[in-house]
């Protein structure tokens, strides 16, 4: 049986400092922990992470796996799993900055394409009770990107990163039940993706790519009750 040791501690510390890691970063950390990553890597990671989760679970932390919506890349995320009076003592961001982040989530979730323009994001500051200056807001958005809570694409559009989506999964489902859509293929929360013109179902880009590749030339909507011919309509 695997024994909890310095390697696991290093992994936790590395996770704390980065928030999330892609597979090659996980590989790098685990190999620094003295594990041979060349054989049965998947199996080893699963065991490694499971053991860590047993140890950090009691303080409401969990390492979870998730896919980045835009490119389908897998990541491991260190997530806080409970909203308590102690967790609310967190001070990485000021209360007003957190209010702005909430407004950002709201407008991203309410937007059909799961993105918001940078100008629209700046205008969210008007909705705050306590005002935030434009420069201050811009610094905050940069910090959010630096800390990997949000992503900015080449057009300057802001979306929630896999870190936010994984950690805030339950929050978004609970607070915005009328807005959230779930991918018909993987059943997970879907903010950015493709939609079917016929039935309105939404799919992650990666999930639908996998599906269509299997289908061959006659593409139909992945939704079992629909199966309308797929018109390559993309909602964004």
């Amino acid at each position: 049986m695997e024994v909890f040791g310095d390697g696991h501690r290093l992994f936790i510390q590395s996770m704390m400092s980065r928030g999330m890691m892609n597979i090659s970063e996980v590989k790098e950390v685990i190999s620094e922990c003295g594990l041979d990553v060349e054989t049965e890597f998947k199996d080893k990671v699963v065991k490694f992470v499971r053991l860590i989760n047993q140890h950090i679970g009691p303080i409401n932390l969990e390492i979870r796996k998730g896919l980045e919506e835009e490119n389908g890349q897998p990541y491991y995320i260190l997530a806080n799993t409970a909203e308590t009076s102690i967790s609310r003592l967190s001070s990485t961001y000021s209360p007003n900055e957190l209010e702005l982040f909430k407004k950002l989530i709201e407008s991203i979730v309410e937007n059909e394409d799961g993105k918001i323009g940078s100008l629209a994001a700046m205008n969210l500051t008007d909705k705050l009770e306590k005002k935030i200056g434009k420069e201050e807001a811009e610094n905050f958005f940069n910090r959010l990107e630096d800390d990997r809570w949000i992503r900015k694409n080449t057009n300057g559009k802001i979306s929630l990163s896999v870190r936010s989506i994984v950690e805030l999964d339950q929050y978004i489902k609970d607070v915005y039940p009328d807005y959230v859509k779930f991918c018909s293929l993987c059943t997970k929360l879907c903010l950015q993706g493709r939609g079917c013109e016929n039935c309105g179902a939404k799919f992650h880009i990666r999930c639908s790519n996998v599906f269509f590749n299997k289908q061959g030339s006659n593409k139909t909507c992945p939704e079992p009750n629909c199966r309308a011919p797929w018109g390559q309509v993309v909602i964004h």
């Binding site: 909203e83 967190s90 990485t92 957190l98 805030l168 339950q170």
Partner: peptide, 14 residues
């Protein structure tokens, strides 16, 4: 020490 940074539970639900 590296510090913990999280969003879930950092703010109150509206």
């Amino acid at each position: 020490t590296p510090v913990l940074n999280f969003m879930c539970g950092a703010f109150q639900r509206d």
